[in-house]
Amino acid sequence: MKTPNTNFFIFIILALHFSGLVFSQDSCNSKLNLKSRLPFDATSLSCLPVWDAEGFVLRYERSAANGSIWSFVLSAPDPNSFVAMGFSTTGRMVGSSAIVGWVDSAGTAMIKRYYLGGTSPALVVPDQGNVTVVEGSSAVVLESSRLYLAFQLDMGQPSSRLIYSVGPNGFLPVGPNYRLTEHRNKVSTSINYSTGQTASEKAPHLKLRRSHGIVNMVGWGILMVIGSMIARYGRKWDPAWFYAHASCQVSAFTLGVIGVICGFLLESRLDSDVSTHKGLGIFILVLGCLQVMAILARPDKASKVRKYWNWYHYIVGRVLIIFAISNVFYGIHLGGEGKGWTAAYAVVLSVLFLSSAVFEYKLLTSQN
């Protein structure tokens, strides 16, 4: 009796092991073979890969019979979460309208329209948006470990700025609110519907956004902290500590004002909703102005009210620093700069706070 060919069995095992990966792939060289599972004819759609990192493939077509009807089929590996395609006028998530689809653990397919009014889940509103979906044209199909989002829009010309995103693994929206959580990954692209050319887009006004973030981070979020440390721990070097403290805080305030101006310019150009971040920034600026005016009105050391002035200056300064640090972290989140910026700023703060703890210990021990 012959021994079975070992290579043959290895081949079969490997084929079975990788079959999910092979079948989950899609490309514009392959035909869309979903037949009657889609609500409209998708045999002649134009096709292009739109997000290689996540394996997204987009097929689209403008109806010849009715020029206002656009058909779309977005294909992506099943992430065990949601897959989304957004139409944006600015290239940003906020203010865009998105078509989002998923298949839950029971095999129920869902596709919904959303309006992205802000960055918090409460502002991502289902069944709203600036695109009109043709009734009965939407479907989600799970085939060979891939999700296919199919829908038709009734509009003259869809936005050429498209955003694709994929949700965190294991998260599926549930009724009745169908709230979305923050995406695991996203990309902003532009498309020429006539030529079929697509390209990734950088975040709009990236230099201005980063300038706004850096000067505010350095000014309000770092120099202001260093200045307060000089005032508390450097008094034995009188009067040098005062001039160092004043120079540091004036520099911090100047950079902070520049950062606020950059913020107003950025808001007008992006037309984005950052009311909380803006409100905190204005509040911090007001506190900074109060500190500057307090310096100009500082009473003499021999004055009876000098003690109360010190309390006021100390309290307002600490409140300013707390809100400034919080707003810097919030601004990094809004800017979508990711964990690198957050980690870098956290490291700087950790060094400052550890240094402050050491100085505080030495200050207490010297007083005893």
Rank of each mutant, 00 (worst) to 15 (best):
A302V: 01
V133L: 15
Y312G: 00
G167C: 02
S194N: 14
T132N: 12
S160G: 15
A203Q: 12
F264M: 09
N192V: 06
G175W: 01
A150Q: 08
T276E: 12
V305W: 10
G156Q: 05
W102S: 12
E54Y: 09
D41L: 11
F253Q: 00
G196S: 07
E135P: 02
V103Q: 01
G219Y: 03
P176D: 10
Y243I: 10
F359C: 07
R298D: 02
E143R: 12
T89P: 04
V351F: 11
N368F: 05
T90R: 15
S46A: 15
W309G: 03
S200A: 13
R113A: 09
A203G: 06
L265E: 05
I282S: 04
G107K: 06
A346E: 13
H183P: 13
D154P: 01
V292L: 11
H212W: 03
F11A: 13
W102G: 09
S96G: 13
T181H: 00
A42M: 12
L123A: 15
L172R: 13
D78G: 06
K186E: 13
M293A: 10
N33K: 08
K2R: 12
P158E: 01
S44Q: 14
Y148P: 06
K301D: 11
Y115K: 14
S350Q: 13
Q291T: 00
E360C: 08
V351S: 07
W311M: 06
L285N: 03
F323M: 12
T195H: 11
S36T: 14
G196R: 11
L296G: 04
G317C: 00
A297I: 03
V274E: 08
N216L: 09
S63A: 06
R184Q: 10
H205T: 01
Q367D: 02
L270Q: 10
R92T: 15
M85P: 11
D271Y: 07
L153S: 07
C289K: 00
K307N: 05
V358L: 11
A106N: 15
G67H: 09
K301P: 02
Y178G: 02
S350K: 03
I282F: 10
L74T: 09
W102H: 09
E337W: 14
L180R: 02
S356T: 03
F323P: 03
F56H: 05
A15Y: 15
L290F: 14
H17V: 13
K301T: 11
V316P: 01
V131Y: 09
Y164Q: 02
S247A: 12
R146H: 08
G331H: 04
A15I: 13
T189S: 13
S356I: 03
D127M: 00
G234K: 02
L265H: 07
G136N: 07
G175V: 02
A122K: 11
A231W: 00
V215S: 08
S75F: 00
